[in-house]
Design a protein around this nucleic acid. Structure first.
Length: 476
RNA sequence: GGUCCCUUCGUCUAUCGGUUAGGACACCAGAUUUUCAAUCUGGGAAGAGGGGUUCGACUCCCCUAGGGACUGCCA
C-alpha cells in the first residue's frame, strides 16, 4: 500500500457500473470522462463491476457493459474487478470499524425501521437507530445489520472538483448500513474499500452520488484512509429536460449502435455534453485527451440533442474509411432482408464514397445505397413510369447510345457526357434527368446522375436502361 | 417534508469583474439544382426574477422562482 496520499500518486480512475440492466448512455459518458482524464494525466483507467446486489445483477448486464465499453473503444487498462468477489475484504473493514467503535450492531426489524423512517421524515431529520447507544439484547440470536456510527455534530465538506466545496451537516447524514443482515456489504462500504484498494485517485461519477461522497468521506476518515479526489458529473437529461428515459428514443449504448452511430462520433458528442474547449466542436481522441480536464466539466445537467448528435455523426461518416462503412452498411442491409447478390459488397464500396456526404447514420447510408443492390430488371415506381412518355423513351434510347460510346466510366466523364447530350438534344437536363434516375434506381434514393452511373458500372447502368425501355414498350 | 446540486440564444457551450456576450446544432431567407441531401451566403435568437458588493457585474454574495438528485439491509 502506498504511503503517498492520492494527490501525489499517478492518476487512477475507474468507472463502476452496476450490472442491473442495459448499459446507460450516462454510464458511457462517465466512462469516457474517466478515460479521457486518465489518458490526459498519463494515468490508469479501470473498470469495476458493482455486483453486490446479487438479486438484481445479471450475467447479461455484465456482458452489456463489456460490449458497450468495447464498442465505444474505452478499454480499461486492467481486467475488470468484480465487487462481489471482494465481499470478505469489505466484511473485514466493517468488523474493524466495529472494533474501533465506529460502527455498531443494529437489531431493528424492518417494521421498526419503517416506523422510524416515517417519524424521521415527518420531523425532517435523518433516521437514527436506538441500538446506536444500546448493547445487544442479552443472549440474543436476533438478526442484525452493522451500521456506521456517524458523527452527530460538525460538518463534512466534499471538495468536489466540478462543484467546488459542498458542505453537509453531519447530523443530516444517517447511520448507513455497512453490512446487511446476511453479512453482505452494501454499496457505500464496498465502494470505499474497493476504491482504496484499487488505488483510485479520482472518483469521477454521476451527480446522483454527491451526497454519498459525504457519507463515504466519513467512512474513509473512520478507517484512517486518505480520500480520493471527487468529481461529480451532472446527469444527462432527455430533450425535454426530464431524466433520460425510454420515451426519449434511447438510453442504452447498444441502441445508439443499432441506430447507426459511429463510436468515434458518440465519443465526440458525449465529450461535448457537459464539457467544451473554446469553439472546438469536431475533434479526435488525441485532441480530447490533450484538452480534457475534469475541473472544466460544466456543473449543470445537459440535454441530449439528437440533431447535434446526427450532425456530428455525419461528420465522422465523411471521414470514415469506405471499406469499413461498406461492411457496416452491408450488415444493415442484411438485417433488413435486402437480397445481397455476389457483388453486393463491391457495389456498396463503389457507391458509399459517392453518397456518404448525405448520411448522418449508417442506417441512412443503407437507405442511400439501396439502389445499387437492386436486381435487374428493376420494378419501376409509378412516378418514373409516368415520366416515361414516348418522347422521353426515345430520348433515353439516344442517351443510352451516347453513354455506351463513352470511353471512360467515371464521374467527370459522365458528367460531361450528360451535359453534351443535353446540349445536342437542345433541352435541359430536367427533361430527362428525373426519368433516367428513376430508371437507374427504381425509385430508391440516388445521388446525382454521374455518381449513380458510376456507382452502378457501365454494364449495370446500360442494362437497367435497356430493361426500362423494353418494359415500357411492352406496357403500351 | 428535509438535505444538496443546478439556472447564458430552442439545444450544447465560450466568457471566468470591463466583449457590439463568441461558436456549433437547429431554425429562417437566398444561392446552387436532374430527386433527396450536401454545399455556399446571409439572418433572427441568450445572461430566470429581485436585491446587494463594486468605478464597473453573465461573472462575487443573498433572497425568490423553476429544474434535478438524494433521503433503501439499490447502486
Amino acid at each position: 500500500m502506498s504511503a503517498l496520499s492520492p494527490a501525489d500518486r499517478p492518476v487512477v480512475t475507474r468507472v463502476a457500473p452496476s450490472p442491473t440492466g442495459m448499459m446507460h448512455i450516462g454510464t458511457a459518458r462517465t466512462a469516457l470522462f474517466n478515460w479521457l482524464f486518465a489518458r490526459h494525466c498519463g494515468g490508469t483507467f479501470l473498470l469495476r463491476i458493482e455486483d453486490t446486489d446479487r438479486e438484481r445483477s445479471t450475467e447479461a448486464a455484465v456482458q452489456a457493459i463489456f460490449d458497450g465499453l468495447d464498442w465505444l473503444g474505452l478499454k480499461a487498462d486492467a481486467p475488470p474487478v468484480f465487487q462481489a468477489t471482494r465481499a470478505e475484504l469489505h466484511r473485514q473493514a466493517a468488523l474493524s470499524l466495529l472494533d474501533t467503535g465506529r460502527a455498531y450492531r443494529c437489531y431493528m426489524t424492518v417494521e421498526e425501521l419503517e416506523i422510524e423512517r416515517q417519524k424521521a421524515r415527518a420531523e425532517g431529520r435523518a433516521i437514527r437507530s436506538v441500538w446506536r447507544d444500546h448493547e445487544a439484547p442479552a443472549g440474543s440470536n436476533a438478526p442484525y445489520v452493522i451500521r456506521f456510527r456517524g458523527p452527530l455534530e460538525g460538518e463534512t465538506i466534499v471538495n468536489d472538483l466540478i462543484k467546488g466545496p459542498v458542505r453537509f451537516q453531519n447530523k443530516e447524514l444517517d447511520d448507513l448500513v455497512l453490512l446487511r443482515s446476511d453479512g453482505m456489504p452494501t454499496y457505500n462500504l464496498a465502494v470505499v474499500v474497493d476504491d482504496h484498494d484499487m488505488g483510485i485517485t479520482h472518483v469521477i461519477r454521476g451527480d446522483d452520488h454527491l451526497s454519498n461522497a459525504a457519507r463515504q468521506s466519513l467512512i474513509y476518515e473512520a478507517l484512517g484512509w486518505a480520500k480520493p479526489a471527487f468529481a461529480h458529473l451532472p446527469l444527462i437529461h432527455g430533450p425535454d429536460g426530464a431524466k433520460l428515459s425510454k420515451r426519449h428514443g434511447a438510453q442504452a449504448v447498444s441502441e445508439f449502435a443499432d441506430m447507426g452511430y459511429l463510436p468515434e462520433g458518440m465519443r465526440n458528442y458525449l465529450a461535448r455534453l457537459g464539457w467544451g474547449h473554446g469553439d472546438d466542436e469536431i475533434f479526435d481522441d488525441d485532441q480530447a485527451i490533450a484538452w480534457f480536464n475534469v475541473a472544466d466539466v460544466v456543473s449543470a445537467p445537459a440535454r441530449l440533442d439528437w440533431d447535434k448528435l446526427n450532425f456530428i455523426n455525419g461528420q465522422y461518416i465523411r471521414q470514415a474509411d469506405d471499406a469499413r462503412l461498406a461492411d457496416l452498411t452491408l450488415d444493415i442491409h442484411r438485417s433488413r432482408d435486402v437480397h445481397l447478390h455476389a457483388g453486393a459488397l463491391e457495389a456498396l464500396t463503389r457507391a458509399i464514397p459517392l453518397v456518404k456526404d448525405g448520411a448522418k447514420t449508417i442506417l441512412q447510408l443503407a437507405d442511400l445505397t439501396l439502389f445499387v443492390l437492386k436486381a435487374r430488371p428493376l420494378e419501376l415506381d409509378p412516378k418514373t413510369k409516368n415520366l416515361l412518355t414516348d418522347e422521353t423513351r426515345a430520348r433515353l434510347g439516344r442517351l443510352r447510345e451516347h453513354l455506351a460510346r463513352e470511353a471512360a466510366w467515371d464521374i467527370v466523364s459522365l458528367e460531361q457526357a450528360v451535359r453534351t447530350f443535353s446540349e445536342s438534344e437542345g433541352v435541359g437536363i430536367g427533361k430527362f434527368g428525373p426519368a433516367l434516375r428513376g430508371v437507374l434506381s427504381g425509385g430508391a434514393p440516388a445521388p446525382d446522375l454521374a455518381s449513380t452511373l458510376t456507382a452502378l458500372t457501365r454494364e449495370e447502368s446500360l442494362g437497367r436502361i435497356d430493361d426500362a425501355l423494353s418494359q415500357s414498350q411492352q406496357r403500351v
